[in-house]
Simulated scan of single mutants.
Amino acid sequence: MSSKTQGYFYVLITMSIWGGFTILSRLNAQWHISAWDITAIRFALASLILMPILVYRKDTAFLWKKEPIVLALFGGVGYCLTVYSAFLYAPAAHGAIFLNGCIPLFTAIAAYVLYRQPFDRHMWLSLVIMLLSLGGMAYLLTLHNHTALGLGDALFVLGALCWGIFTSLLRRTHLSAWHAMSGVAIWSTLIYLPLYLIFFPKHLDQVEPLHLAIEGIFHGVFVVLIATLTYVEAIKRLGAFKTGSLVTLAPFISAVLAVPLLNEALNPAIVLGLIGMGIGALQPWRWFRRNQLGDT
């Protein structure tokens, strides 16, 4: 198997997991699993797997640096609480639009605010497309007496902001993918779990054990561990832009699949939002320039 073929294989695994994240996060609402509970399960399970490995390898020194702690606050606790909460109030299509569509935008904004990294012409074009699609979506929603932005959508936007800050900070750290993944999981557990146990409501006894097992294994193992590693391996073989574009497509596909799988509805406003935000996030015009398909 060639390196390129391996790259597409890793992309396929990552896309499947990222697409499943949208569907299974939305299922939390139907299975009555709260955002507080699934966040605790996700971090606790990942840490139980990672910590023994780090101790066995005598590879724990990096945990005492400030970078994993800061990354955990934004890419761990902040992102998970906002996104899991959002899926309790808004359908999968809204997650694709307001979360995955806005992540590239907020990543660029965070890079500018934190490091004065200017927008390139691709991001300016994406910004225009996104604003036009959101404006058109809002107009179509108001025509049918729907609110343009609900609580779930606002939480998706906040989650995109958390992930944008996390991504920008991650680019400036010297942590490997393994250390970044392990540090975020373990410090998120250390920060969040005491707060969860003392202050937050718990409804685990009201949930089917099978549903808890499915969600726990998927979010704690597949999302945190497997998808991170396959994403990094895909980048090594295909480049950052091509890999990022392909895996970003997964949530938009999941939004369409949620119609038959979760019995969610699509209307012209949501379709416009999906198309516009998808184009803005994927930047398909760059695929026609050979020099843009590498590691950019």
Rank of each mutant, 00 (worst) to 15 (best):
L48P: 00
I49G: 00
L50Y: 09
L50C: 08
L50Q: 07
M51K: 04
M51H: 04
I53E: 00
L54N: 03
V55E: 12
V55P: 00
R57D: 00
R57P: 00
D59V: 02
T60R: 13
T60S: 14
A61F: 13
A61Y: 10
F62N: 05
L63M: 13
W64Q: 12
K66T: 14
K66L: 15
E67K: 06
P68R: 09
P68M: 11
P68L: 15
P68F: 07
I69L: 15
I69F: 14
A72L: 04
L73K: 01
L73H: 07
G75C: 01
G75M: 08
G78A: 10
Y79F: 14
C80T: 07
V83N: 05
Y84I: 10
S85D: 06
F87R: 03
A90I: 06
P91I: 11
P91T: 10
A92L: 08
A92D: 07
A92H: 02
A93F: 06
A93K: 01
G95A: 04
A96T: 00
A96N: 02
F98G: 00
L99V: 01
N100S: 08
G101A: 11
P104V: 12
P104L: 10
L105D: 06
L105S: 00
T107R: 00
I109H: 03
A110I: 06
A111E: 07
Y112W: 15
Y112A: 14
Y112F: 15
Y112P: 01
L114T: 05
R116V: 05
Q117Y: 12
P118Q: 15
F119R: 01
D120V: 13
D120N: 15
M123L: 13
W124L: 15
W124R: 11
W124P: 01
L125N: 04
S126A: 15
I129H: 03
M130S: 10
M130Y: 02
L131A: 14
S133E: 07
S133G: 12
L134Y: 06
G135Q: 11
M137N: 09
A138Y: 10
L140W: 13
L140V: 11
L143T: 06
N145I: 04
T147I: 12
T147W: 09
T147M: 14
T147P: 01
A148N: 07
A148L: 09
G152H: 05
G152L: 10
D153C: 11
D153H: 04
D153N: 10
V157I: 13
L158Y: 03
L161M: 12
L161D: 06
C162K: 03
C162D: 03
G164V: 05
G164C: 07
G164Y: 04
F166L: 02
L169C: 01
L169S: 08
L169E: 01
L170W: 07
R172A: 12
H174F: 13
L175M: 13
L175G: 05
S176R: 02
A177W: 12
A177K: 12
W178F: 15
A180D: 06
A180T: 11
A180Q: 10
S182T: 11
S182Q: 09
S182R: 04
G183Q: 06
G183R: 01
G183T: 06
V184N: 00
A185Y: 09
I186D: 11
W187K: 02
T189G: 11
T189V: 10
I191Q: 03
Y192F: 15
Y192C: 08
L193C: 05
